[in-house]
Design a protein around this nucleic acid. Structure first.
Length: 465
RNA sequence: GUCCCUAUCGUCUAGCCUGGCCUAGGACACCGCCCUUUCACGGCGGCGACGGGGGUUCGAAUCCCCCUGGGGACGCCA
């Protein structure tokens, strides 16, 4: 096989969908694995619905995911001359014809066919007409009649055969003169030397006609690999009502790109019992042979689990940077707070998203602690006065505000008060964080630092109920 | 409706091609126990599937057929 050339060809009519991201990922992976070329092409022949904002959003999302392309982005709207020329050639050599049927007529026939239980197909009304009325027309591809069926060997699904009687003469040029998807996709994939087309399952029905178009235009037919769709929890095609479908929505939810990549790759593909894959692992191990043939249900819990894994094992300073926008979004001013990296370290094992981490980190930066009412009633009571007095005394005397130093200080506190550590820790936790769940007390004290910690404890002494 | 695809725990899946190693393995979720200064992490254990029916075979999750379920397509969208 010649050098592998694959492509991702989104239509810019919205954000990058996670289904699209997955087919982009599979293309990218295979290209990298085989030292091939990954082409990005923007399918914007539907000028009505295509927008520059969508193009930007898609490019941005691909960049966030780390899916870089080797060629492109190519825009189909910039290639209309080529398509025009191809349409003319088709017309000239009798492989296409003008059709003057109106959309209304076609719609009526479609409905009639459906009602009668037949597959709606164009009936060929204009197929053999020779006149050229002065009326709007579309150009249709004349379905070749020399074969009864078309078969292709899908790299994922195996051999698939369509009887030509299921097909009809498809429109390759609209009445406004613009070319249609099924036509340009063939021209572009052929002209860009794409030899393996990896795309969504929903395109298998288009494949036989596209193959016929390749043949009609004298192009080599590429290989196809149709990846199954992603479904929602009700096994319906994944859509907004199942939750977020946009790649960038996951970023906003505090998901790391490597977690999304890992999740998307494992949805419908596997490698033994392995679950954790870096991009490098995927490039090394991915193969079409191990892609499943059935549609898969999107499972946010597993994505979250992967995300918690990547947060747990992620680089601290990177996470610190990623966390900042989430803190800002919460209205947390971290300009004078404790060291962000130190904060992150205490939260890595207890956060499954950056949102959770931001929630857990907010108390570090608070000017004054707002106590959870229940926590205050339980732990900041007047009978804790003696305990807090001893704690303040010992922490003020503590000259090493780290684990060992604090351990020595609290040994004294426990001895003087006769309390077990648990009885000391909880009231102190509420004093320092306002709530009953937080990173360990030593970590909190150390990250907060001596001054900030003492200020909070003293404030709590004033707030005892 | 017609055509195409598809079918292992609730979900993602291993196993299927090259039948016996499968009293079907892993992961998420869930439950329990342990660890423990809280919450988590972690460790251990549990729950839980070959859609149904026919074949072929000494033997089928694995091969064949039918049924059923699910998805997709049927556009002057892509």
């Amino acid at each position: 096989m010649s050098d592998l050339r694959v492509r991702f060809a989104p239509s810019p009519t919205g954000y990058l969908h996670i289904g699209g991201a997955r087919t982009a990922l599979f293309n990218y992976l295979l290209a990298k694995k085989n030292n091939g070329t990954f082409v990005l092409r923007i399918e914007d022949t539907d000028v009505e619905r295509s927008t520059q904002e969508s193009v930007d959003a898609i490019l941005f999302a691909m960049d966030w995911l780390g899916l870089s392309y080797d060629e492109g982005p190519f825009y189909q709207t910039e290639r209309f001359d080529l398509y025009k020329q191809k349409v003319q050639e088709m017309l000239d050599n009798g492989k296409a014809y003008r059709c003057y049927c109106t959309p209304e007529e076609l719609e009526a026939k479609r409905e009639k066919a459906m009602a009668e239980g037949r597959k709606p197909k164009y009936d060929g009304t204009c197929r053999n007409r020779t006149d050229q009325p002065d009326a709007p027309f579309v150009v249709r591809f004349k379905l070749p009649e020399d074969k009864e069926e078309t078969t292709f060997n899908d790299r994922i699904k195996g051999p698939i055969t369509f009887r030509h009687e299921e097909l009809d003469d498809l429109i390759i040029q609209r009445s406004d003169g613009t070319p249609t998807y099924n036509f340009v996709v063939v021209i572009d994939d052929a002209e860009m030397d794409i030899n393996l087309i990896i795309r969504g399952d929903d395109h298998v029905n288009n494949t036989p006609r596209q193959i016929l178009l390749y043949e009609a235009m004298g192009y080599a037919v590429p290989e196809f690999a149709h990846v199954p769709m992603i479904l929602g929890s009700d096994k319906k095609r994944l859509s907004k009502r199942h939750g977020a479908t946009s790649v960038m929505a996951y970023q906003e939810m505090g998901i790391l790109p490597e977690a999304l990549i890992n999740y998307l790759a494992r949805l419908g593909w596997s490698c033994g019992d392995e679950e954790i894959f870096s991009m490098a692992d995927l490039i090394e191990k991915f193969s079409l042979e191990n892609v499943g043939r059935a549609a898969g249900v999107f499972n946010p819990e597993k994505l979250n689990w992967l995300n918690s894994h990547y947060i747990k094992t992620g680089d601290v300073s990177r996470l610190a940077e990623l966390l900042k926008p989430f803190l800002t979004a919460k209205g947390v001013d971290f300009s004078n707070g404790p060291d962000m990296a130190a904060v992150v370290k205490t939260l890595q094992e207890r956060s499954s998203t950056l949102i959770e981490m931001a929630d857990g980190a907010a108390f570090y930066f608070a000017e004054t602690i707002e106590y959870d009412e229940k926590a205050r009633e339980k732990f900041l009571t007047a009978d804790q006065a003696d305990l807090f007095a001893v704690v303040v005394e010992q922490l003020e005397a503590c000259d090493q505000f780290n684990h060992d130093g604090l351990d020595r200080a609290f040994a004294v506190v426990m001895e003087k008060t006769g309390l077990k550590f648990g009885k000391v820790a909880q009231p102190l936790r509420v004093a320092l964080t306002g709530v009953t769940a937080s990173p360990s007390i030593y970590e909190v004290l150390e990250v907060l630092g001596k001054d900030r910690s003492l200020r909070r404890i003293k404030a709590a002494q004033q707030a005892l109920v």
